[in-house]
Design a protein around this nucleic acid. Structure first.
Lengths: 212, 212
DNA sequence: AAAATATTTAATCAGCTGATTAAATATTTT
DNA sequence: AAAATATTTAATCAGCTGATTAAATATTTT
C-alpha cells in the first residue's frame, strides 16, 4: 500500500515502468509480452513491476486506456468548434492525426489488434461519445449539401475515407516500407505530403457527388 | 513419417486442422492461441495436431503463407492485363478486394499485426514481386497524365488511397461496428456500396490533380 | 477377415511465465 | 544520524503450454 506522498515521490519510477510497458505492449501485443520484457525495458526488476501494478493485466489496462485517449484525443474539440469552417476542420483533423501518428506509429495496429482480440473488454472504455448526430461538422456538411441542392454521400463514408487515407498507411507501414525499401524518414515525409493532399482529395470526393 | 499415399488419405483431416488453425490464429493471433484451442476447434485432439504438423510454429507458418497468398492473390493478374483500361482495372481491384475481405474480414488485422510483430520473418515470404516499375497499370497511369499534360500524383499515393479506402474499414470494423451499433450485415452492405463508390472517388482524386 | 493406417487415450515432461515473499541493501526524508 | 521508504536480490511456486510417447481402439484398405 502506498500513501499519496509515496506516489508523488515514486512518480518518476512509476512513469518509467509505464513507458517501458507502453513500448513493449505496442511492439509485441499483450499476449506476446512477458512481464520480464517490461522489467528489462524499464531497467527495474520483475518484483518492482508487480509491486507497483499488482499484475500484468492491470498494467496493460492502464496503458491501453491511456493510448486510447491519445488516439481519440482532441477530435471532439476540432469537430465541434463553431468558429472554423468545414474545410478548416478537415485540414486540422488530418494534420493533427498525421502528427500524432508520426509520433506513435505503432499505435493503430496495437489498438485495432487488441480491440479485435477482445472486443467486449473495450466497448466501455472507448469514449468516442461523439453522439455522431449532434456534431457540428455534420451540420456544416449538410448545409453544404443544401447549398448545392444535391444529395450527400452518407457522411460515414466520408469519415471513413478521411480516416482510412490518414491512418491506414501507418498500419501498412511495416509491409510497405519493407517491400519498397523505404526508410522511416522517407515514409514520414510522404505522410507530411499527405497532410496537404488528403484535404484536397476529400474535397474532390465531395465535389464528385455534387457534379453527378 | 507419412507416405505419399497416407497424405492423400488424410487430406481431409489435415485440411480440417488447418481450417481450425486458420480460424483461431486469425481471431487471436499467434501468441494468444494455444495448440489446445486449435485441437478443440478442429474436433481432434492435441496429439494429432502435433502428429500432423510437428509444432505450433510450423502449423502457423503454413497458415500464414496461405493467408498471405489469399491477400495478394490475383492482383498481379489484374494489374498487368493488357486488355483492360485503367478505369476497368480500378473497378476490378476494388470489387475483388471487397469480395475477398467480406469473406475474410479478420485477415487484414491478422496479417498486419503478425508482420508488425515479426517483420524480418515475413520479408521473404511476401511475394508481391510486382516489380512496381514495370506494372502495366502504371504505364496507363502515366499515359493518362501525358494526355492531360499535367504532373501526376506520386502513384504510390494513389495506390495507398485505393487500398486504404478498401481495406481500412475492415480493420476498423470491430471498433466501428461497436460504436455505431452496426451489425455485420449492415457493415457488409455498406462495403458493397463502396464497390461502386471507391472507383468514382479515385477518379475524382485523379481529376483534381489535372484541374489544379 | 487380415493387414495397414488413423485416431484417441492417458500419462508424462520440461520450460516458461506471472506472481509472491522475506530479507538485504540503497536512497530519501525528517 | 535515525527513520522511513524504495529497490534489489534470491528463492520459490503453481499453473500453463508445447511437445512426446506407448498402448489401445477405430477405421480403411487389401
Amino acid at each position: 500500500m502506498k500513501s499519496a506522498q509515496q506516489t508523488d515521490l515514486n512518480a518518476s519510477t512509476e512513469e518509467k515502468i509505464k513507458e517501458a510497458a507502453r513500448i513493449v505492449f505496442t511492439r509485441k501485443g499483450y499476449a506476446a509480452t512477458r512481464t520480464r520484457d517490461i522489467a528489462e525495458e524499464s531497467g527495474y526488476n520483475l518484483a518492482l513491476i508487480n509491486y507497483y501494478f499488482r499484475s500484468k493485466e492491470k498494467l496493460f489496462d492502464i496503458i491501453m486506456l491511456e493510448q486510447l485517449q491519445v488516439f481519440v484525443q482532441s477530435i471532439s474539440g476540432i469537430v465541434n468548434d463553431q468558429t472554423t469552417t468545414l474545410q478548416e476542420k478537415i485540414n486540422l483533423l488530418v494534420s493533427h492525426y498525421i502528427d500524432m501518428l508520426i509520433a506513435n506509429p505503432g499505435l493503430p495496429i496495437f489498438i485495432m489488434n487488441e480491440v479485435n482480440a477482445n472486443p467486449e473488454k473495450f466497448i466501455s472504455k472507448i469514449g468516442i461519445d461523439v453522439g455522431i448526430k449532434d456534431v457540428f461538422i455534420l451540420k456544416q456538411w449538410h448545409e453544404m449539401a443544401e447549398r448545392h441542392n444535391a444529395p450527400t454521400i452518407n457522411p460515414l463514408h466520408l469519415i471513413m475515407n478521411l480516416v482510412s487515407m490518414t491512418v491506414f498507411p501507418f498500419i501498412a507501414s511495416p509491409l510497405l516500407r519493407n517491400k519498397t525499401e523505404m526508410s522511416v524518414e522517407e515514409f514520414n515525409s510522404m505522410m507530411m505530403e499527405r497532410k496537404k493532399l488528403i484535404p484536397i482529395w476529400i474535397m474532390a470526393i465531395v465535389q464528385s457527388t455534387f457534379d453527378s
